[in-house]
Every structure is written in C-alpha cells, then in structure tokens.
Design a protein around this nucleic acid. Structure first.
Lengths: 339, 339
DNA sequence: TGTAAACACGAAAACGATTAAGTGAGTTTG
DNA sequence: CAAACTCACTTAATCGTTTTCGTGTTTACA
C-alpha cells in the first residue's frame, strides 16, 4: 500500500533517495538511510512486485512446468515431493513459484511465451511430455531452466541415481541368496528405463547371474495392469523367479495382487522389490523392499542449480546432477539358500 | 518482447490506438483495428504482465496457500487432487496460479502482505493450520478468498459432503447385514471429524443400531499407528465389531496390517471401510470399500467461486458449497446375516 | 587559499501498459 | 450555412520503481 512516494513525503526527501536507501546503495548518508529504513518499516512498506519487475526485468518468480497426465503429475507422490522441496528451497532464496501453462486470455500461448509474459526468471520442468513440441521449444529457449529426471543438453538436469539404485537393489537381493531374479521394467522408450535395464544386466553379469530373456519384461510405470500380467507370465514359467523387480511401488501392487490371488505368500514363497519408497510402500505388510528416491534433495538441488543459473549464468555448470537413492530393506525379500 | 510501441511504429499510429485496438475498444476505426490486430499477431505480441498489473491493479494471478506439514499437504493425494483441479479451472479462465509464502528477500512477510506484494487478486486456502495467526489474518483481510474443507464466515467454503458420505457408508454396511459397527475417527478438534461423528451417531440411531461407546475411537488422520492401536483394542473386545470404519484410506492401512497379523481375513472375518477413495485404495486386494471425495469438483468449484468473487464481488454469495462423494463398493465389506 | 575530489541528494527519464481528455476532420441538423 | 455532433485518433498523465546524470556542499590536499 505504502509507496516510495509516501515514505519520501514523510521523510522530506526525494523518491530516488528513498529507493536508494532501501536498496542499501552507497551514495546515501548514514543518517538519512537509517531514517528512511525505519520509516519504511513503520509504514509496513514493501515494494510493488509489478513495478519492480517492469523496471528491472527481475520478477523473482520461477515457473514450474508440471503436466498432470493420467495421475503421474501433481497427484503423484514422487513428483509432488520434488515440487514441494523445490518450492521450499526457492522460497527461502526469495523466489516465488508459479505454474506455467499455455493459456492467455482466450487464446493459446506457447509455454515459452507464457514465461516471457510473466517475466519468469527461470523455469523448472518437473514432469512433462518430453516429445511435446511446446516443451521442446521451451527447452531450446534462452530462459534459464532445469529439468528433473530428464537430460537435455541445454540445461542442468537433476535426476535420481538409477544406476546406483538398481545396482544396490540387485546386489542386496543377491546377498539374500536369490539367483533367479526377474525384472519387470517400465516403458522401453523412457530414459530412466534404459539406464535401469542396462544397469540391471551389467550388474547381473558382474555377479555371474544368468538372466533368461523371459525374466525381463515390460509394464507401464504407475499402472497395475501391466505388472499384473507380467507377473502372471513369470509365475507360469516352468522355472519361475524367486524374486521379482517391479518398475515402481505402484505398479508393483498389480503383481502383489496376482501373487496373493494365487495364495503365494510374500516373501516366503516369492520375494518382490519395488522402486520409489512411497509412503504406501511402508504402510503395507510386509513392508516393501524398495529404493527411496530422495525427492527432497532432488527438489532442493534443482532449485539451487536453477537459481545459480539465474544469478550467475557465467559460472554455473550445465551438468547432470545425480542424487543417490536409499535402499529400504523392508520385509518383502526373504533370505534363501542359493540354488 | 514486442511492445505496444513497436506495433505502433509499424502501423504508423499511436500507442494509445494500439492499446485500444487490442482491447477491442469502441473508438477505433474498423480498418485500423484490424490492421493493428494483425500486426500484433504477426509480431507475436502479448502484453507485459507486470506493466499491465502496475497500471490496472489486475494481475490475473491467484495465490494458493498450501502448507505441507507432515505429509498432509502437497504430497497428499486428496489436497494435490484438489489443487490440480483448481489450477486447471483457474487457468482455463485466464488466471495463473502462484504459491503464497511468508518470505520476502531476507525478512518475513505475513501471508497477507505477500499477497499484496504480488498483487494477487484472490486467494484459495487449501491446506493450512487454521489456528495460525497469519492464516487468520489472511482470512480476515479484504482479499477475495475461498477455503477448502474449512468454514469461515468471511468467504465461500467448498468442502466435501461428510454428512452424506458417512451416512451413505453406514447405510451401505447396514444393508450388507452388519450390526456391530465400530468407527475409528480422526482427531476430535477437527471440523470434519465433528460432522462425521455426529452423522455416524445420528444415522445409527435412525437405523436402530446400538453403538457401544467402546466402538467409537480416535486415531490421527493419515497415520497408521493410531488406527493400528485402536484396531487392536477393538479386536480384543469380548464382542468385537464385524465392521470397522477408518478415518481415511491411509490410516486404515494401520488397522489392515493388524488384522492381517492376526491372520484374520478381509472381508471374510472382518469388514473394513475407508474414506477418500485414494488411488491406493483401489490397488489393494481386496479393493477397499470407501468414499471417493470428488477432488475434481471441489477444486473446480473453489476456482469458480473465487473467480466469481473477484470479478463480481457484489453478486457472489458467501456460502458453503458441499460436494457429494461417491461410494465405492470395493470388496472389503462382506455380506453377512444380521445377528 | 584555491582546486579537486568525495559525498549526499534531487530531477527526470524510463519500463510497458491504460485511459481521460483533447483535437481536427467530416457529418448532421435546424 | 453555422452550430453541434461523431468519429477516429493523439497527447499526456499515471501506476511504482530504478537509475543515470546533474548539482550543491563538504572535505582533502598541495
């Protein structure tokens, strides 16, 4: 409400002086500066964001691209966890968070245009269709940006360490004595899937495991049907696995249901492991063995990188940041004697 | 990038003319208007949000207060579902969404101040500590606002219909033949709990059910421990219930685990019902009998009310809007013969 | 003591838009 | 045919900041 003008009047100085005093500039007398600052405090002054943004082209506003499709966005624990951490960190550094969209008045706007319209200083793409031309345009735009769980040459990327995660998980299961281990993985085209599958194969080799082709199957992330089907197929094999890896904790439920229907006990008859460390995974009984992705750290790191890119573009590295996950032992993997 | 000035230059008219032409004002010749609009289109013009906000005091920006404490905020399916729907609806009406916080540069700002600073036109409070003085200040501020799941005299409130939900659930269970029905409800101080418990008691009376006091127990929302404990107590009764109501789908898991540990089968030995209709509830086996809260409709309705309040403050009713839930039969309640 | 540098502040333009008021040309009207 | 209107457009002020440049006063130094 109170503006620089009001403060200026009250202090008997010019608007320029007030502005400088509040911005702690050098060419202001100590006394005046203090007086102005005190008055501003008393009047409950804070700058008008619009005016400041107009003049300085700094909005202290960060845009978040967050497309919620088929329950894999905002309402999904992993992404919303990342967003929440991102928000906290960005806010603590003085930035506000807004959602990017592609609408403006009655017509459409590209994401990039929307960002310019709102003077976003940077953008984090947490969850999006990476093949969408509008997203690609945004990636190629000069706006500072950071991606989560997707690597693009134009900007820093923060993602969880799938290599370490899968390797750790597989070695853990191996130590528990399992040798017949199946992997139901997510969609083939996904970057994440590729990393995980490659690592799975490589680690298996290192351990001297022979993984038959029919042990490696595909099922959609976050959907139970595919995992259920794949589980059926695995259980129907003449030599079924003793342990099954699932794409994520949610898809795992599909397999878990099938196993229960067949009156097999987890982990006595068959062991299972998930991925994500969702809240749910630890509520179930037996608790899931899974990898907790560190959504907090991912979010915080993404925010730090982005803000660094905004504030010191020259010295900020465009690199991939990989955040390690944590193995949660749970109770869904049984100790067996290797056969 | 392109400003009114650029368009003006290109069209050989004044800035004012361009502004009017684009805002479809009346005192502009048809030809000029078309020419300007076409040029603007070609140049990829869109207004500068900051400049416009500065001049008009309209930011087309809505603030969301969303405090994530102990996993009950952004990362919770119910609230994030509401937020997502709110976002969609608000965006489709030309508003953008930002998060409210209480930080500004190095110091703190109240929520109200933050809203003024950012020129938010309205505020939706989705999830907050309603006893926090800062929240109360915001509620009492003149900023247009809407609350979700909390009723305050100052603004429209959108909430799910707990009365209908509990009544429907209880009548359903009754029809299935259950007579010994226990209710583990959420924290006593909560508005939602009060409504639900009152309704439970009233409906029970209407059905001629006698609910012993030890059948009504308290456990925290969204936490499994309390529900687990309460379940133990219920199962230890000399005459245990045949069906247990839980505060929500998540807390229910606590009870479910206890039941499984005791080698009781759901629903054959005991029936259970949840509340919320979370994704998880339908993944479990057996699928939960629960009430799906219509987060989509709640979000959309909250957005509509708020925007209506912003755009036509005189004619918008400050009333409570109650959104009905949907009974999801699931498989966790068994048909029994009443005893 | 004279000159230069340092200091403290103000005037004014600018950011990009909106809008009330003004202006000149053409049109209507009595 | 002069007065009164319309129409279509321009001028200029304004929103609240920031920032460049200018100016007057004080201090420093030779």
């Amino acid at each position: 409400m109170a503006s620089l003008k009001d403060i200026a009047k009250k202090c008997g100085v010019s608007v320029a002086t007030v502005s400088k005093a509040l911005n702690d500039q050098s060419d202001i007398g100590k006394e005046t500066k203090e007086k102005v600052q005190k008055t501003a405090q008393q009047m409950g002054y804070f700058p008008n964001a619009a005016a400041r943004a107009l003049k300085t082209h700094k909005s202290y506003n960060i845009g978040v691209l967050f497309k919620d499709e088929a329950g894999s966005g905002l309402t999904h624990e992993y992404f919303s966890g990342v967003l929440n951490a991102f928000k906290e960190e960005a806010e603590s550094q003085g930035y506000d968070i807004s959602f990017i969209n592609n609408r403006f008045e009655k017509r459409e706007l590209s994401y990039t245009e929307h960002c310019k319209y709102r003077n976003f200083e940077g953008v984090v793409i947490v969850c999006a269709d990476w093949n969408d031309p509008a997203v690609i345009e945004l990636l190629n735009s000069p706006i500072p940006k950071t991606t989560v769980d997707y690597v693009h040459q134009s900007c820093p990327a923060v993602s969880s360490n799938n290599i370490q995660g899968i390797e750790e998980l597989l070695r853990y299961v191996y130590r528990k004595g399992h040798r017949r281990i199946a992997y139901i993985h997510g969609e083939d085209f996904s970057y994440v899937t590729k990393e995980r599958v490659t690592t799975f194969r490589k680690t298996a080799e290192e351990l001297g495991l022979r993984i038959p082709d029919e042990y490696i199957r595909t099922a959609e992330y976050l959907k139970i049907e595919g995992a259920a089907k794949a589980t059926e197929a695995l259980l129907d094999l003449s030599e079924p696995p003793t342990c099954i890896f699932y794409p994520d904790d949610t898809a795992l439920i599909g397999g878990r249901n099938v196993i229960r229907e067949r009156h097999l006990r987890i982990p006595d008859d068959i062991s299972i492991v998930g991925y994500d460390g969702t809240r749910m995974s630890q509520l179930l009984s037996p608790r899931l063995t899974t990898i907790r992705q560190d959504t907090d750290l991912i979010g915080v790191e993404a925010a730090r990188r982005l803000i660094s890119l905004i504030e010191k573009p020259k010295t900020t590295l465009v690199e991939r940041v990989v955040i390690g996950g944590t193995l949660i032992p749970g109770e869904s993997v049984k100790e067996v004697t290797p056969n």
